[in-house]
Design a protein around this nucleic acid. Structure first.
Lengths: 161, 161
DNA sequence: GCCTTTGTACTCGGATATCCACTGTCCGAGTCGATTTGG
DNA sequence: CCAAATCGACTCGGACAGTGGATATCCGAGTACAAAGGC
């Protein structure tokens, strides 16, 4: 899995902390996480296409959350960055080789191997879909109460929001 | 995920059907699935290193299961082919950028993002570990009772085993 | 003083190179069976 | 006819290229602000 997923999650977590309508530029977000700005911009473009972020051009432009953090699941982020194709792609191997000589009716039932692999991926996606950016933010706030204030201070935002 | 996983699963399923001690050469397995023999050989080498298969060299050599199919989980196969490293690798982004100015004690608690992602991967691995090659074989036999006989016939094995 | 116009600096967005892992292929080490040769 | 030695063919095993996607970067389109100029 690409590093872009981790970057995107951290950026979204940051944006969820300084929750105001003021957009934040990639330059600030990249500096705040010590990441290459141009490449981070590419990832945020993917999040924008997925309607997770809203981008505003111009000198005071930047990115802001397109919807509340409580409605952005980790699955949404992974799908936006990595794509919606499953990791395991069934190439229907059973229909080739010796299987090519069998009647097509032999393959009416789905491939058991593909089914089992997709079942596992479904469990993975279910876990990711059950957790939102807001859940992460709340969990961190509980364990490290200063995190929110520290983030707002680092980005020069009012302490209360 | 690489195609090698699917190939390996199909080969193991085939070997589980003709369950005897006679090893099967890569050439036959590749022809039976219409796969490039040399590259399939590479994947089977990985399975051998993981002690899922046993290889015997020589003119009558080939590969056979190193243990009963009921004790080979899909997780074992995926780990053997793809490696045991998790798909999501936490690069500790939080400790860089603005986090670099914070005291190290701020990072005593584990990264919540990494924890959430690893929790999802754990669910994925749990599903894969709960299913064995024998389970797949039994499922296919139930849906397509002729599959076992067809496989043994295609590889020139006695019909009863 | 105030409004319009111009210029500039800064932002996102997409097009463009670079690098690594997956894919694919090849040849050598080793082994078993068949064949040949000698008794 | 039988046994031993030799030859050969076939197998796995690891070393060697090709390719697509992830990584990383740069430049252009567009916007808001600031400043300058005219009224």
């Amino acid at each position: 899995m690409g590093q872009g997923v981790e970057w995107a999650l951290h950026v979204l977590l940051t944006l969820s902390w300084l929750d105001d309508d003021e957009p934040v530029a990639v330059k600030q977000l990249a500096a705040g996480h010590d990441l290459p700005p141009a490449y981070l911009n590419k990832q945020l473009q993917a999040l924008t296409r997925a309607e997770i972020l809203e981008s505003t051009p111009g000198v005071r432009g930047g990115f802001r959350l397109a919807r509340p953090a409580s409605r952005i699941t980790l699955m949404d982020v992974v799908a936006a960055i990595e794509g919606r194709q499953p990791a395991f792609r069934c190439a229907e191997v059973r229909t080739r080789g010796v299987g090519a000589d069998l009647p097509p009716s032999s393959f009416d039932t789905p491939c058991a191997i593909s089914t089992a692999m997709q079942r596992a991926e479904l469990a993975w996606r279910r876990e990711l879909a059950a957790r939102t950016i807001a859940d992460i933010r709340d969990e961190v706030s509980e364990r490290t109460p200063l995190a929110g204030k520290q983030t707002r201070d680092a980005y020069g935002r009012p302490p209360a929001g």
